[in-house]
Design a protein around this nucleic acid. Structure first.
Lengths: 137, 137
DNA sequence: GATAAGGTCTGTAGTGACTACAGACTCAAG
DNA sequence: CTTGAGTCTGTAGTCACTACAGACCTTATC
């Protein structure tokens, strides 16, 4: 009853394979309400269709762009209700972009300090080390 | 019996204030063995001295540079045993630096996609939105 | 029909690095 | 002596998963 069988619905592993999502993550997204509870077979197996594939891909792409689950939940609620506007989504995106840029700035600060300190290391088999001095000072 | 009283030892809040560390984090570091169990007063209050201040500052500076707790644990074990060498510390630092640079590269990738997509937004009160299309496609 | 292998179900616990809180105790000042 | 602040403990919550145990179901092979 898998993916390759004509239109009879996908099992969890099929959905995972189609999207590249981890198997357990699908269940997790259902538990936290990011994915709808899917219909079940008589014996309790989840049955997915193309709408689930689309929604899961949306979430996974959002995660790849660094959106938090809560940000995506907000986005999905707007879309589900059909009340989204480009203005609103743009604002959310630009806020997230600002967060990303702040993280980059912080990492660059760290990078500079690490590179400068490591550059002072002799790299020899001696106990004295500029890195340790920077931490201990 | 606080910080300002001559050399009688620091209480937990004193150590927190001296280092800028959160009060609870100190207890956490003791629990996971990053900080030694301090001596106690008869009634069970922790008593710290300058060695604790130094060690905590070491950990906090390391964290500010993005070292993980486990990386710092390794560094501190070397220092505690007196077996550290500049070569070894330099290698650990450069590995960490490579991790930081990888994170920066990933965030820059995200930044580019977000900026390019948001730039296509009309920003108007319409439902169509390039950001949503990028996620849903 | 029997059996074995593999897929799916559930709930729960673990990750990293803290942070917050409840309820009991202690200490210092007025 | 009381009051308020500080400290003690253990535990639970955060975020976004990931992994596992033990039970159940399905499919293929004989």
């Amino acid at each position: 009853m898998g993916d390759h069988v004509s239109g009879k619905g996908l099992k969890r592993a099929d959905l995972a394979r189609r999207t590249g999502c981890n198997l357990e993550t699908i269940r997790y997204y259902e538990k936290i309400g990011m994915m709808p509870d899917p219909p079940r077979t008589a014996s309790g197996y989840r049955v997915y269709d193309e709408t689930h594939v689309g929604r899961l891909r949306f979430i996974l792409r959002g995660r790849e762009l660094g959106f938090s689950i809560e940000e995506l939940r907000g986005l999905l609620q707007l879309v589900d209700r059909g009340t989204q506007t480009c203005a609103e989504v743009k604002a959310l995106t630009e806020q997230h972009l600002a967060d990303v840029r702040a993280k980059i700035a912080e990492l660059r600060r760290i990078e500079k300090v690490l590179a400068a300190t490591a550059a002072q290391c002799s790299g020899e088999e001696v106990p004295e080390c500029p890195v340790l001095e920077a931490l201990a000072s």
